[in-house]
């Protein structure tokens, strides 16, 4: 029996390790590339072990930027990305929790129509409505601003639906008890619903932060100035296609740096994230 169990444990582990290797190897390679001098990579002889230029490359990526393309240093881009991702995540959570509250707890004319309208926007990602959105943003003088980067992406059907589903599981008696306890709609929201939604909000924050962080098309359109560009755009612009030499070690270092904030968010909020997805605290 013991033998068999050992084998049964081994197989899943083997599969998992293969999976991890497939996912993690490119990341590892990017890390390795970010620690060598440009000539080695340009030669096409990628070593499999980290090189000696770690500190120098990262210092240049963060504070100086690439020489050839005179782009902003990574520090500014990270800040832009951070503002955008935080703005999108927090804005989405705030707007969707309030609209879900309205849809679930209030009877008003065209309530279901409002709900279905929100639902339908699920089928319209940024890419589909890109032209009108750009026009509106441009007319409102939002080009090259943080508001322009975040506001058009803030409305979220997914988050509204998620909060709606959660609110529907909150027992009606809790609303009734609150009413008897003298809590009006605002107090009920603040004192009962918000604290109960804490884990849901955390889970959503993780998902939406990464969503915001990884935005590519919209920031590409809305920002023209280098000091407003996000890191995802920055990486793309570092890769020169003309005859100049792409500084791959800096591109890779930037990519590594771009990965850090989402990874940090996931790791820090992992516990709340899982709880928010699997359990509802009632």
């Amino acid at each position: 029996m013991a033998e068999r169990r050992r084998f049964e444990n081994l197989l899943p582990h083997l599969i998992l390790w293969v999976g991890i290797a497939i996912v993690a190897f490119p990341v590892y390679l990017a890390f390795v590339a970010s620690t060598h001098e440009p000539a080695i990579i340009a030669n096409g002889q990628m070593p499999l072990t980290p090189g000696p230029y770690f500190l120098e490359n990262y210092y240049r990526a963060i504070f100086v930027g690439t020489t050839g393309t005179t782009r902003e240093p990574v520090g500014t881009m990270l800040l832009n990305s951070l503002v955008m991702a935080l703005g999108i995540a927090l804005g989405k959570i705030a707007i969707s929790i309030v609209s879900a509250y309205a849809i679930v707890y209030f009877r008003f004319p065209f309530r279901m129509a409002a709900f279905w309208l929100i639902f339908v926007t699920l089928m319209l990602p940024v890419e589909v409505r890109i032209y009108p959105t750009y026009k509106v943003a441009a007319d409102l003088q939002l080009l090259d601003t943080y508001a322009g980067l975040t506001l058009p992406l803030v409305a979220s059907a997914t988050a509204t639906l998620l909060f709606r589903q959660f609110f529907l599981t909150v027992p009606d008696e809790l609303v009734e008890a609150s009413r008897i306890d003298g809590a009006g709609p605002f107090r009920f929201f603040k004192d009962t619903l918000l604290p109960l939604s804490r884990t849901n909000m955390a889970a959503l924050f993780v998902i939406l932060f990464i969503y915001g962080w990884n935005q590519y098309l919209w920031p590409l359109l809305i920002t023209t100035r280098d000091d407003m560009q996000t890191i995802v755009i920055g990486i793309k612009k570092m890769i020169v296609t003309s005859d100049a030499l792409t500084e791959w070690q800096l591109v890779m270092a930037t990519a590594m740096l771009a990965m850090l904030p989402p990874v940090a968010v996931v790791i820090l909020m992992q516990k709340l994230f899982v709880r928010g997805l699997v359990e509802t605290e009632k």
């Binding site: 008696e173 809790l174 009734e176 008890a177 009413r179 008897i180 809590a183 004192d191 604290p195």
Partner: peptide
């Protein structure tokens, strides 16, 4: 709230948090 009553519910309806 202004009726000056108190209610005990079947599922207690305590505020979980």
């Amino acid at each position: 709230a202004e009726r000056d009553i108190a209610m005990v519910f079947q599922n207690y309806a305590l505020y979980p948090h």
